[in-house]
Design a protein around this nucleic acid. Sequence first.
DNA 1: AATGGCCATTGCATGTAGTGCAACGAGATC
DNA 2: GATCTCGTTGCACTACATGCAATGGCCATT
Lengths: 254, 254
Amino acid sequence: MSQTVDRALSILPLLAQGPADLGRVADRLGVHKSTALRLLRTLHEHGLVYRQQDNRYRLGARLFALAQEAVENLDMREIAHSHLVALNGQCGHTVHLAVYEDGEVLYIDKVESRYPVRMYSRIGKPVAITVAAVAKLLLADLPEAERRALAERLDYPMYTPRSSPNAAAFLKELATVREQGWATDLGGHEESINCVGAPIRGADGRVVAAMSVSAPNVVVTAEELLTLLPLVRRTADAISGEYSGNTPPSKDAS
Amino acid sequence: MSQTVDRALSILPLLAQGPADLGRVADRLGVHKSTALRLLRTLHEHGLVYRQQDNRYRLGARLFALAQEAVENLDMREIAHSHLVALNGQCGHTVHLAVYEDGEVLYIDKVESRYPVRMYSRIGKPVAITVAAVAKLLLADLPEAERRALAERLDYPMYTPRSSPNAAAFLKELATVREQGWATDLGGHEESINCVGAPIRGADGRVVAAMSVSAPNVVVTAEELLTLLPLVRRTADAISGEYSGNTPPSKDAS
DNA sequence: AATGGCCATTGCATGTAGTGCAACGAGATC
DNA sequence: GATCTCGTTGCACTACATGCAATGGCCATT
């Protein structure tokens, strides 16, 4: 691992908390100001940080552009999107698509509810991993050892009384999810919001993504939402099929 | 400037074009494979790149998270958002908020149209800088020298017959915009889409952001859209006022 | 099964390039 | 106008990144 790069990259999460001046960055990094200056300059040239008029640094524009390009290049998202839109067209609720990556679950696509009451979530935002239906689906399929290790090191915030309280309960829930092949979040994240989700599988049967439909109590009850399960599963299976059928990962135009 | 960090960061735009394996990355960087490996590992540890099962690398999750945190920490966005929502409530069309940064103009907030026909745009996406109303507003206020220099090095893609064809025409357009204090894009980016925008100014009168209302021809004609100009300007001025009134970041007790 | 080729990985010797120091300068404060 | 703070620069030193060559795993070919 490269020390210099490591230091430079450590600046990014630091600036994510808010703008900081040179001295502050140097302190947090534990390096001399001149060193911090050179790192910041390099980050600046690549557009990852921006220097405002008061000489403080904050995260820069290219970060957004990179994130955009990244999400748009995901095969899964491309394949799934039209299916998600179709599902939204049928039920009208918010539809999410998520993937697992290095201990995090994050949304990679979203179709907004057609109802006025909308959920707060954003593409790229890490998911509440211990309660979200899509997170359960993705984690349930991890290899035993990795799943246990991850569950142990997670935090279990009690968003509501129905949140998973600890690793043991969570692992049990994951076992259930793996058995039944679908998952719910009934008010485990926000009191009034329910979700029902299904896994998307690759050609080898491994879960590569997960999708869910979410709606607040005030629009449909949990029972009504559950009646959508077959539809959600069909949609997920359709995406799985298309994803497995077309396996053109060698799509290089160099 | 740090060579090592420079190389590492050069990997990111490279991977933005699509996944690449170690050899490919090393080639593109012009370094030995072992060097590329160490850089990739460092990026990986910070979550900026992800290593897929086939050993190819692509951009990673934390990139999204960083971009999210960055956009949510922008004062301008926070202040403006409620105004944008209110404006959308009154006219129903898509509302955009954009800022200029190092030669790029990018959207930092967006309120979706309530009509079924929606524009394609995303928060964080770079704006078509030679045609968008918000881009004209932001560039029109740049210092003379910087404006000229930027105009000269831009590309002028002819999205439609009404796109700015070259630097001279663009600079002339910017002069008009600066004079009148508002801007339009009448089918300069996509044939059927019109925009009308107004600048948001800081306490010193400099343009710090720009906003616009966009709607396709099929919903309202360009003439009808222009009748919204006073409303757009009022909204922009209201945001300017609030932004100038509250100056919390500038005055800090030591 | 055995072989050959491809690619990721590792340990190490070399010298390049990143580091901290100290001095300088600009801007603000009193 | 004096003093303090903070960003900036040039430089000597050596820590650290680099490329090489060798190893090992994986896959395809025979």
